[in-house]
Design a protein around this nucleic acid. Structure first.
Lengths: 120, 120
DNA sequence: AGTGTATTGTAGTAATCACTTAATTAAGGG
DNA sequence: CCCTTAATTAAGTGATTACTACAATACACT
């Protein structure tokens, strides 16, 4: 249930579409496959990838397989992405503020682009 | 700058480590490569992938290349992930509430998982 | 049991990936 | 100019991916 598998699973547009569709409620494998331009076998393999990543769970009901979303695997990835995004955005906001105030404020981070390189 | 490329870029642990490290401030390609157990060539190729995904920008300073993060590409992916995660979580919360109240409430969504399973 | 339906497993294939080593470009300094 | 440093590109390799068609499994209905 590593982030590797979660992000790799999300990198495929077909799998993201499956997840998008699943947000509207649980579906069978057949319902998910129906509008897709690929074989049912291919869909089944995509579901296996999503299951391995922990993004969905599958259960049986007669011949049909019920596919349901699972939030747990997504939490870690969402948190990581959110943290990176927020900090980024904050850095840009800081930069905007610095530029706006025209203060030579130090960034205090290890930022080689600000280091004065006199000579080596 | 598609989500395909962004998620694919994030699926590799080396590239996530690069991004994590870059959150502390801009770095040169050499600084990024130094603690990694792979060749500089490999790091350069990872940076190319990250740049193609729009996650970083590269600029020249003498012989060195300065690597910087770029929030824009991440926004779309973060939003998608957050939306899926939130809706998911909400569905679970609803389920918790229904179970807590012991109401047989129908979920009203196309949810075949409520179909009774007699025997396997 | 025998048939139809829903789904998954199994080759097999073309494309892509992550890595290596070796060659190449680009910028300074003697 | 030649050499060193910093980084990228090129070529090649083994592993993995996304798909297909075909076979196998599982269940329900008659």
């Amino acid at each position: 249930m590593s982030m590797d598998h979660v992000f790799a699973a999300l990198a495929d547009p077909t799998r993201r579409e499956i997840i998008d569709r699943l947000r509207g409620g649980d579906k069978t494998a057949g319902e998910l496959a129906e509008p897709l331009p690929i074989s049912r076998s291919a869909v089944s393999q995509h579901l296996k990838v999503l299951e391995a990543a922990g993004l969905i769970t599958r259960s049986k009901s007669a011949q049909q397989r019920i596919v349901a979303l699972n939030a747990d695997a997504l939490t870690e990835a969402t948190d990581w992405l959110q943290a990176a995004h927020d900090e980024w955005q904050q850095r840009f906001d800081n930069l905007d503020r610095i530029l706006a105030e025209e203060v030579p404020a130090d960034t205090s981070t290890t930022d080689p682009s600000t280091a004065d390189r006199t000579a080596d």
